[in-house]
């Protein structure tokens, strides 16, 4: 009889945790659960406690803001193999944005309090987790800066530039 995979083994297959220490992944699996979101369903809402973040397995998610008097503004889209949510890492542990499913989404949810407690209790594990998450946060910061640069804005004419 085929044994079902443990949550730790499933997490190890996700790109975020590929190559992560197997024992640490099993330890992390104790905080993880499977989730499914239908189109337009919220994974979380802005200003709510950041209790659970998600590793996307299938489907796309929009990070967005509900702006009074305007339609919803999508800031960033997140796709399979990526993480939704970083506000669980630092106080005050509240989401800054809404996360909404753009279609059928399947994800691993990680209980943030459970993970923080494990990181506190086992600093080696916590360091490994933070080393895994910090590049993702830095990548997101770079992406935001690139969007702020408005790279494709019409150039100011400074003579005859090649139009490209």
């Amino acid at each position: 009889m085929v044994q079902p995979k443990t949550m730790g083994a499933l997490l190890a297959e996700h790109p975020i945790f590929q190559g992560f220490d197997p024992e640490a992944t099993e330890f992390l699996g104790g905080c993880a659960s499977n989730h499914h979101f239908a189109f337009d369903e919220f994974l979380f809402r802005a200003d709510q406690p950041a209790e659970r973040f998600y590793l996307i397995r299938t489907g796309d998610v929009a990070l967005e803001l509900d702006m009074t008097g305007r339609k919803r503004l999508v800031i960033h889209t997140i796709h399979p193999g990526q993480i939704v949510g970083a506000s669980w890492l630092l106080p005050p542990y509240r989401w800054r944005f809404d996360a909404r499913a753009l279609g059928d989404v399947r994800a691993f949810g990680i209980d943030a309090t459970c993970l923080r407690n494990k990181c506190d209790a086992n600093p080696d594990f916590g360091y490994a987790v933070f080393k895994r998450f910090l590049p993702l946060v830095a990548e997101r910061l770079l992406a935001t800066r690139m969007q702020l640069l408005d790279l494709y804005a019409p150039p100011v004419e400074v003579g005859a530039k090649l139009q490209a």
Binding site: H79, A143, Q147, D150
Partner: peptide, 21 residues
Amino acid sequence: VDRHSDEWAGPVGPVTELIGR
């Protein structure tokens, strides 16, 4: 696209995101 608008249902972010994905 860098900036979302109402009629857009595709990815939002910088072009470098596509390189990784």
